[in-house]
Write a protein that binds this DNA or RNA. Sequence first.
DNA 1: CATGAATGAGTGTTCATTCAT
DNA 2: AATGAATGAACACTCATTCAT
Lengths: 195, 195, 195, 195
Amino acid sequence: MMDVALKLFAQKGYPNTKISEIVAAANVAQGTFYWYFKSKQEIVIQLIAEGQESLLKVISQGYRKQGGTVEDMVQASTQLMNDLLNFAESNRHLMALLFIEGKSGDEAIRKATTEVLVAIEQAFRRNIERAVELNMLPNTIDIPLRASILAILIEGMISRWLFGTGYDLNHLPTRPAGEMAAEVARFEFYGLLGS
Amino acid sequence: MMDVALKLFAQKGYPNTKISEIVAAANVAQGTFYWYFKSKQEIVIQLIAEGQESLLKVISQGYRKQGGTVEDMVQASTQLMNDLLNFAESNRHLMALLFIEGKSGDEAIRKATTEVLVAIEQAFRRNIERAVELNMLPNTIDIPLRASILAILIEGMISRWLFGTGYDLNHLPTRPAGEMAAEVARFEFYGLLGS
Amino acid sequence: MMDVALKLFAQKGYPNTKISEIVAAANVAQGTFYWYFKSKQEIVIQLIAEGQESLLKVISQGYRKQGGTVEDMVQASTQLMNDLLNFAESNRHLMALLFIEGKSGDEAIRKATTEVLVAIEQAFRRNIERAVELNMLPNTIDIPLRASILAILIEGMISRWLFGTGYDLNHLPTRPAGEMAAEVARFEFYGLLGS
Amino acid sequence: MMDVALKLFAQKGYPNTKISEIVAAANVAQGTFYWYFKSKQEIVIQLIAEGQESLLKVISQGYRKQGGTVEDMVQASTQLMNDLLNFAESNRHLMALLFIEGKSGDEAIRKATTEVLVAIEQAFRRNIERAVELNMLPNTIDIPLRASILAILIEGMISRWLFGTGYDLNHLPTRPAGEMAAEVARFEFYGLLGS
DNA sequence: CATGAATGAGTGTTCATTCAT
DNA sequence: AATGAATGAACACTCATTCAT
């Protein structure tokens, strides 16, 4: 039931998805929904929590590589971006839920998604801090702001890559994840002016 | 009536705002709403259209400065960012509507906000193209992608600066617009590694 | 709408009466109900409150007669009983609501009806106190208990007279109010052993 | 299971008590209920029937004493009232069910409780008839009415003694059963004017 | 221009009951 | 005997929209 609910929420939005549609798609009776979930809100929260877990797993496995040179750092970042994009691609519906419902919707839902985004930001923050310690990044930079910028970047990038500018669930990524990841990581470190 | 509707939409979200609340806040009768607007949807669309106009005005006035050096370019970008942040700060409710409802909500609403975002992206794109022509940026870069990245960046930055990570309408910007603009413009051109 | 609701509540009981039935009987749309009443519960509370008011008016007008002899007292009591019975007879539905829903039902409803019954009891209590002061009743009696007994008596009597033993809304009083009132007043003062 | 159901029905009322609550309190599965009882209604009916039996046993044992004088009669009545009050006190939940659900609720439930009340009334009626035959009561009195009045009296008295005016299940009797019984029996025979 | 009473389709949720195991 | 997952009809309440004044 959760898969079909996730799909419907992603396609039509949480408020526009009726319980009756979920149960119809899942081929169970209306009452059955309430055997498994306390309310409509509970299923989204649960969906988001599950998604958070998988997503954080990806992130925590991301930045493993360590190395001395700047290129190693770019490498590692590219790797993380790539992992995230791959995850996002195979979890389109989840990403839609996170990016779309997370912004509007009921307080409780917003709170749940915010946690996910904060977690991403903190992962970036830790990485920047480490890099500064290793003298790979200038210690003059405003770390929290930069972490924020990176989180924004990755979030927006995933969102646009997956759904295009119009948040269209049927939009197809126009370039491979690897290429995208490389471009963004490059921008991350070198900006518009390039290497 | 439009101001109070904008405020309510921003505070509670479009689907959670009832016509009855709007008219109550505007001190008119329920029927009066329908003398001014064809439907609930129409008022949002109209609200977004008005917002789009003002926002585009800001953008079009932004990149006026021309100049030969890279620093001129950074300057100009900082200026634009600054203008956008200032506009956003004095139009919090509009920005909330744009960033929040623009992602979820009905097709028509999403379409309206998408136009605004596309316009921003195109403004950046034109600027990058010009810079490449002037040999101020390497001609190897993927222009649409970079424009996209910039649009993402500015969008996410405004959103977080105004509302914090949790999309909280009562969040207060923690740093002055000017400082924020400078930091972001710097990142835009030089990336994490700095100038 | 209130009349038809009262009738339906009396006939079928509060929980068994659907809003849809009320509006159907009142020939208005479902939503109209909620224009006038906040909830299903609110209409009963209102109904009971109105009933309480009329009922208390009857009671307060009841014991007006004053007099020196015991027979005057019996007279006055008969008069009150008679007034109450007449009121009850022309407000069958209200009495049903009071006696039936007042005992079960939601806390709020029970509380509302309890007030009515307490008011009746206090009217009796004041009368007994006055009679004791005038030495028309022995000052050895337990006043609150006796007031309670009288309240019970009148309540039960009305209930059975109107609805029979089986709380049947279609039951018809088998004897005239006046006769009933006289019998009960007689019992009130002289008990089974009679005058 | 019946005990816990009785308790719950008394506490929350029949319609507000869910099967799920009964089985939860009885620590069995939902389906188990339907192995023991055909329906929710059936368990109440059964509960009432059991209660009726015990109650009638008390009543039939009540008026055993015979005697020539009026005081003997008052004695006997006091004894019966006392027995009833004691029974009621140790069967609070049952009494609540009888007095509360008996008035509202489904036809079948009302019918079941009515039987109990009719039985009480008939016990009183027989006693009055006997007393009239023995010339202990004037033969001018309206026997059925008086029986009715007595039934009302005892019913209301038990109800108020146990639950107070507000039908509060947690109310505690404020005076001992014996005292209460004596007072009521005295009123029964002598009325307000006393012996 | 404006009112506010009236509408009615729509929806989340409840809960007695069933039934395969 | 007992389980507990599954059912589905029922119901209170919401709210955008209409319309007679």
